[in-house]
Each structure stands twice: as C-alpha cells, then as structure tokens.
C-alpha cells in the first residue's frame, strides 16, 4: 500500500457519478440539469440524488428559475467544490505514483 492513506479519499467525491458531475461543472461556467445529464448519461432520478448530495456539501450551487413556464435548474461549481475536486485529483495522482 506504499504511501496510500484511505482517510485522504474524499467520500463525497469518491463516487463515479459525483466525480463525473464535478468534471462537467469544472469545465464550464454553469450548466443546466439536462446538459449534465446528457454529458454523463445519467437518469434524471439518479442525477438529482447526487446533485443534492454535492449541493449539501456546498460543492455546487444551484439556481432555479422558470423559462417559458418550465422549471430550469442551473448548476455551478463553488470555490469549495473546486478546491475539493482538485485535492481529489491530486489524491488519485498520488495513488497512481505511489504504486508505480
């Protein structure tokens, strides 16, 4: 296990779908629910649950509004989320390096 410490792994981000959501949101300024869904091929229900989890941890912020009488949710990564995601990437990189 070399230098690996499981406690350093961020539990919130250590989920494929949440990592994927964060990867989308770190690449754009803001994105609608449907954009994220299409980019990561998730179902509406599953995506909603994981977006909620990220929102509760203040990694993302949501703006809900009505456009042509339809509800539109727009998501944005927060500074806290950006830092956490960057830390998570560094952890992944250290795992790869520590075992090579």
């Amino acid at each position: 296990m070399d230098n690996f410490d499981y406690q350093k792994i961020n539990d919130v981000l250590h989920s494929r779908i949440r990592t994927a959501i964060m990867a989308v949101l770190i690449s754009v300024d803001e994105a609608e629910f449907t954009f994220i869904r299409d980019k990561i091929n998730a179902t509406d229900g599953n995506l909603s649950v994981h977006l909620k989890k990220l929102e509760e941890n203040q990694y993302i912020a949501v703006d809900k509004k009505f456009v042509n009488r339809k509800p539109v949710s727009t998501y944005k990564i927060t500074d806290e989320g950006r830092n956490a995601f960057e830390d998570y990437i560094r952890t992944l990189e250290s795992i790869i390096k520590s075992k090579s």
Binding site: R16, T19, A20, A23, V24, I26, S27, I89, L92, I96
Partner: peptide, 8 residues
C-alpha cells in the same frame, strides 16, 4: 483520471 479527462 481518464474518465475525468474525457468528460472535461
């Protein structure tokens, strides 16, 4: 890491 790169 590869998945993150691809999505980004």
């Amino acid at each position: 890491i590869n998945m993150i790169k691809k999505i980004m």
